[in-house]
Simulated assay, not measured.
Amino acid sequence: MFAGCAATPEAPPGADRQRVSCMTEIQPEMQVHLDLVDAMIDRGKPYAALAQLESKRLSTEDHWLRRGQLLAMTGHLSQAEHTFRQLVDQCHSGRSYHGLGMTLLKQSRLEEALPYLEKARVLAPASADVRNDYGYALLLAHRPYEAATELRTALELNSGKGPVRQNLATAYMLTQNQAGLDLLRDRYHFGVDEYAYARKLARELGGQP
């Protein structure tokens, strides 16, 4: 059962106190602005992306979600947490729960993060990113059998691409699922370097692959 939300912390110094928007309809000119922000993120320029985002009014939930993500990417985890808590309290969307869970995870607050990631999984069950991140958190919590289910789902949702490949291999190693590892190799062309990374992670998590 999903645990109750923790009390919302005071806004950190300098945090924006504007009420977040839960509007999901994006006008064409807003989309152009968001696309520019995303392009900067893709080019590895999160600081510039945040400056560009805040150059215009944050009018939709998408704007505020990106603000939280960019605050986290630039190391402002306290402000990111505050933003995502506002979004959770006011918008109750899967993306807001996901953002808060990942921000808590980046602060090594695993036990706090898990309920939010679980709630995100309930609200957005077909999101490969949500299923992967929840599965990874389950790995960190030493729950590899549950993690394997989430990660296998993420793998299939994402057409066998992305970091979920190594995460799933780690879960299979920790559960001694050789058939799963064979499937990754044969169907998804899992490589030697990926295997080595997954084996290293499994060892760090206390397994004996």
Rank of each mutant, 00 (worst) to 15 (best):
Q107M: 13
R109F: 06
R109Q: 14
L110N: 08
L110K: 09
E112D: 10
E112Y: 00
A113R: 02
A113N: 04
P115A: 11
P115Y: 04
P115W: 03
P115V: 09
Y116F: 09
Y116D: 10
Y116G: 07
Y116E: 09
Y116V: 08
L117M: 07
K119R: 11
K119E: 05
A120S: 13
R121T: 13
R121A: 15
L123T: 12
A124L: 15
A124Q: 14
A128V: 06
D129I: 11
D129A: 13
R131F: 06
N132C: 04
N132R: 07
D133R: 06
Y136A: 14
Y136H: 13
Y136T: 14
A137H: 00
A137C: 06
L138V: 05
L138S: 05
L138I: 04
L140Y: 00
H142L: 06
R143T: 07
P144D: 03
P144C: 09
E146K: 13
E146P: 09
L151H: 12
L151W: 12
T153G: 02
A154D: 08
E156F: 12
N158D: 12
S159N: 14
P163H: 02
V164M: 10
V164R: 07
R165Y: 00
R165A: 03
R165K: 03
R165P: 10
Q166N: 12
Q166S: 13
N167V: 04
L168Q: 05
L168S: 09
L168W: 01
Y172F: 14
Y172D: 08
L174D: 10
T175W: 02
Q176C: 11
Q176H: 14
N177Q: 01
N177A: 04
A179P: 14
D182H: 01
L183A: 13
L184K: 01
D186G: 03
D186S: 10
R187D: 15
Y188K: 04
H189R: 12
H189S: 11
H189I: 05
H189T: 08
G191H: 05
D193G: 06
E194K: 10
A196R: 01
A196H: 00
A196I: 00
A198C: 12
R199F: 02
K200F: 01
K200S: 08
K200A: 10
